[in-house]
Design a protein around this nucleic acid. Structure first.
Length: 404
DNA sequence: AGGTATTCACATGAAACTATTCTCTGAGTTAGG
DNA sequence: TAACTCAGAGAATAGTTTCATGTGAATACCTGT
């Protein structure tokens, strides 16, 4: 036994591929950000007035995921902070970054404001207060002295989808209730069409300035990857063409640099686990599969029981029908059977319809609303995951729920 | 044949309800001076 | 009299149910040729 372990550890030690894995992790912040110079300059010139404690224009950043939006703003933020530190006097502004996608933040307006208060060093209970009160506490907190507060709201589109755009309106409107201090907002959105569906009042006040982050092209991605892989891996462990392949994969996915870096990191991990001395092209393919699978299985695992029941019947039906699409009604019937066998309560069709839609959003199934004329109108459902994953998913569900 | 009207089987939307968790308030209780 | 306890009122949230209304196109039903 001991010998075996020694072997494992030893091979792990010898086969080190990484020299600094953290440079490939998604929270790593490189010192310079290639191909984003223009955007950074623009951001900086818009936010510069903050240095004197003056209100900046509200700013809105667009761009697909992994185009460096967050990285760029945070970079500018840090530079601003550094500069104001140098002057020695207390800085006339504060910058808070808030990622609206985090579960604990994004769900409600209350939590949103509460989180801001916490970031600013205040305290609010998680529940029990009227939302109004939370707002006034927020005002009290920042209005205690003369300052400018810049809020960076990452992935606002997520929050707005959940809450409605009211809170953005409230936020921009707060300025009129503040006597000493002022608030500016930087919104970041992955969704390019985000502003279209928003109350025009909010739109005009929120996006006084806009900057678009175009996706990276394959060549730019290659440069970024090459740079990072030099930092992350030991010398000459990367096979020729690996970086190119990674870049090509990611470029196909709308120039998402984050995805590309993930791919590279996972490939490295797989190579290490294989005991391989180098990262080979095949590791990229494997990594690509693994990422997809882990993502889906993780979702399935954490989904509540009723969701699993529904998914299980979808899987069953899809096996029975051999890939032929099936419809909401079919799923609901099957789902009812499953529930009865399990002595689990049965949800309404209305609800199950929503659950099916959510699976669609998660990318586990493909859904299309079709009308069969007199035959009615319903969703056509197809599983969107490969057989391999389906089997695993099935096992996971069967494990967590005792069928029969 | 060509044009309307129906009709199916849900989709989609809004409101209301339920259970749970939490705060805040103020009445009642207690212990000490 | 100050400090403490404890029940009840109010809020917020997630996850649903209930009720109401919407919908795309295959079919049924006319109409006039």
């Amino acid at each position: 036994m001991k010998l075996e372990l020694d072997k494992i550890f030893e091979s792990f030690d010898n086969n080190r591929i990484f020299s600094d894995k953290s440079t490939l992790q998604s929270n790593y912040r490189p010192e310079d950000i290639p191909h984003r110079g223009d955007q950074i300059k623009q951001i900086a010139s818009i936010l510069a007035p903050a240095l004197r404690g003056e209100k900046t224009s509200n700013l809105f950043l667009y761009g697909k995921t992994g185009t460096g939006k967050t990285l760029s703003v945070l970079y500018v933020r840090d530079e601003l902070m550094k500069r104001s530190m140098k002057t020695g006097t207390e800085s006339p502004f504060k910058i808070e970054y808030l990622n609206c996608k985090l579960k604990k933040v994004s769900d409600t307006e209350y939590r949103m404001v509460a989180e801001l208060i916490k970031k600013l060093g205040g305290k609010v209970p998680d529940t029990g207060l009227p939302t109004e009160t939370v707002y006034s506490r927020f005002i009290d907190l920042i209005d205690s002295k003369k300052q400018f507060l810049l809020l960076i709201l990452d992935e606002v589109d997520q929050a707005v989808k959940k809450i409605s755009s009211d809170f953005l309106y409230n936020l921009t409107r707060l300025n009129s209730e503040l006597s000493q201090s002022q608030i500016g907002v930087v919104g970041i959105s992955n969704d390019l069409t985000f502003l279209e569906g928003i109350d025009p009042r909010v739109r005009s006040s929120l996006s006084e300035e806009e900057i678009v982050f175009p996706p990276y092209n394959a060549i730019q991605l290659q440069e970024i990857l090459a740079h990072r892989s030099n930092l992350a891996f030991k010398k000459s462990v990367v096979e020729n063409g690996v970086v190119q392949k990674c870049a090509a994969f990611a470029a196909r996915e709308h120039g998402d640099a984050r995805r590309a870096l993930d791919l590279l990191r996972i490939a490295g991990e797989l190579a290490e686990r294989d005991g391989s001395k180098r990262i080979l092209l095949k590791h990229i393919d494997e990594a690509n599969v693994k990422i997809e699978r882990d993502k889906i299985l993780d979702v399935i695992k954490t989904e509540p029981r009723q969701f699993q029941h529904v998914l299980y019947s979808i899987i069953r039906l899809s096996e029975e029908n051999k890939g032929e699409p099936f419809f909401t009604g079919d799923v609901y019937n099957d789902y009812q059977d499953i529930c009865k066998k399990n002595h689990s309560e049965v949800l309404t069709q209305r609800r199950v319809g929503d659950i099916i839609q959510e699976f669609d959003m998660l990318g586990i199934i493909n859904v299309r609303v079709i009308s069969k004329g007199r035959g009615g109108r319903m969703r056509e459902i197809k599983l969107a995951i490969t057989k391999n994953i389906i089997e695993k998913a099935k096992l996971i569900i069967e494990e967590s729920i005792n069928y029969r």
